[in-house]
Design a protein around this nucleic acid. Structure first.
Length: 192
DNA sequence: CGTATTTGACCGGCGC
DNA sequence: GCGCCGGTCAAATACG
């Protein structure tokens, strides 16, 4: 998958740790689950939320009217396991459970897991062709912590990220390579 | 009117 | 074989 939004970006994103203008999330744990590979990194870092993009809400996404083109793996046609799928788990300390990465997420389900007293929210990328899923769950011990699990990678760029890229290019501080997307580098490097 | 969100029900997989 | 849990979809509702 070629997607520019691979976990690596998030990693760099956190490492950048530029001071956020308003919202501040503390990443307590950053787990990268990639095809059996699990990396655990406990560090308290400050991260900014893209939802505070000065440009306003990045609602300029293409109206995904085709909500029907979703996966229809109902009758045995269920998708295989996470084959080459990217799984990224974040544990952030935030009052808001929904952290806008700049992408538009559509909630498609909510389920209460027995392991946690708090319900688990299931989000899916609203962009057509992008079957990225996001699972948001509050920590059962500390409700102040939110566990966000990203499943898959975006095959498109988020308007918010592009904005950041554009903005940083003009910023004196420079732009973190993490956000410097390869604007149009569809190198399908199926890293499966 | 259109779109996003909500809730419940259904299905599949796994464990016992 | 049955039960339980997790996950997803689908229809209805609410809001913009």
């Amino acid at each position: 998958m070629d997607c520019p939004e691979n976990p690596n970006h998030y990693d760099s994103y956190f490492r950048v740790g530029f001071d956020p203008p308003a919202t501040e999330f503390q990443v307590s744990d950053y787990l990268v689950l990639d095809d059996g590979f699990v990396e655990e990194e406990s560090s308290s870092q400050s991260m900014a939320s893209s939802e505070q993009v000065p440009g306003g809400s990045p609602t300029g996404y293409s109206g995904a009217t085709s909500r029907n083109n979703g996966i229809k793996c109902k009758n045995g046609a269920k998708k295989n396991k996470i084959e080459g799928g990217h799984r990224v788990a974040f544990r952030t300390k935030s009052e808001l459970e929904v952290m806008d990465d700049g992408f538009k997420w559509r909630k498609y389900g909510k389920k209460s897991v027995k392991n946690s007293p708090n319900p688990r929210n299931y989000y899916k990328c609203s962009s057509g062709g992008c079957d990225v899923k996001k699972i948001v769950e509050r920590d059962r011990e500390d409700s102040t912590f939110v566990i966000t699990t990203y499943d898959g990678v975006h095959n498109h760029e988020s308007p918010c990220t592009v904005y950041y890229n554009y903005n940083y290019n003009q910023m004196p501080m420079g732009v973190p390579h993490a956000w410097t997307l390869q604007d149009s580098s569809p190198h399908s490097s199926s890293s499966s």
